[in-house]
């Protein structure tokens, strides 16, 4: 794996999802998985920060006064209904642990749906940086991670889902996606395995 043409996409690292008092933490089964996934993501980033990998964060936030045409529906509407991820609130801010990487991360702030490619300009940034390989960490497994991963694959990127750096609402969700759905369009690997590939001596 060539670190120079690789991007790490951080999908949805907001306080409401990762912090101990985040609003969405309560709906996650075995919530200690969140801390473990975050710890592994941070560890991975510390190693990646030493390599020429592009790191992009795509937080999601809802505007309080949105035009009715762009108002979220379905699951997104339910999340907004809980008062979670409101733009300008603590819940929508990036989780504090990411601060140590502020000089490394490029943040794309205006995501409003599951998909990090929808109306965010992500594709332009990836093209500009010459990215060919996309690594995805974040949550939730079956929504934002899957939506972003599928589109990345459809756009022709070589996609790898970091299976130990993501979490979904249920254990079943994580299992089904990692075993059945992600392999339809992407590689699945742990952060340690990917780190081995990134650090391996390479013949260009």
């Amino acid at each position: 794996m060539n670190a120079r043409t690789t991007a790490l996409l951080l999908v949805g690292f907001e306080n409401d999802k990762y912090a101990a008092t985040g609003l969405l933490r309560g709906i996650v089964e075995s919530a200690e998985r969140i801390d473990a996934a975050l710890a592994r993501t941070l560890r991975f980033m510390r190693a990646v920060a030493l390599l020429p990998v592009v790191v992009i964060s795509t937080p999601i936030a809802f505007d309080p006064a949105e035009a009715s045409t762009t108002k979220p529906r379905g699951i997104l509407a339910a999340i907004r209904g809980m008062g979670a991820l409101q733009r300008g609130t603590w819940g929508a801010e990036p989780v504090a642990e990411l601060a140590e990487f502020s000089s490394v991360i490029t943040t794309i702030p205006n995501r409003r749906g599951f998909n990090a490619f929808t109306d965010t300009g992500l594709q332009e940034i990836l093209a500009e940086r010459g990215v060919r390989t996309v690594l995805i960490a974040g949550n939730s497994t079956g929504l934002c991670v899957d939506a972003t991963g599928r589109t990345a694959a459809e756009l022709g990127y070589d996609v790898t889902i970091l299976t130990d750096c993501i979490y979904g609402r249920t254990l079943l969700e994580d299992r089904v996606y990692c075993e059945q759905i992600f392999p339809l369009y992407a590689h699945t690997a742990t952060s340690t395995e990917v780190l081995d590939l990134l650090q391996a001596p390479r013949v260009d």
Binding site: F114, N115, A116, F117, T118, Q123, A147, T151, E154
Partner: peptide
Amino acid sequence: ASALGRQSDLHV
């Protein structure tokens, strides 16, 4: 990218 994104959200 945006078009693909919007299309996929429903399936997701």
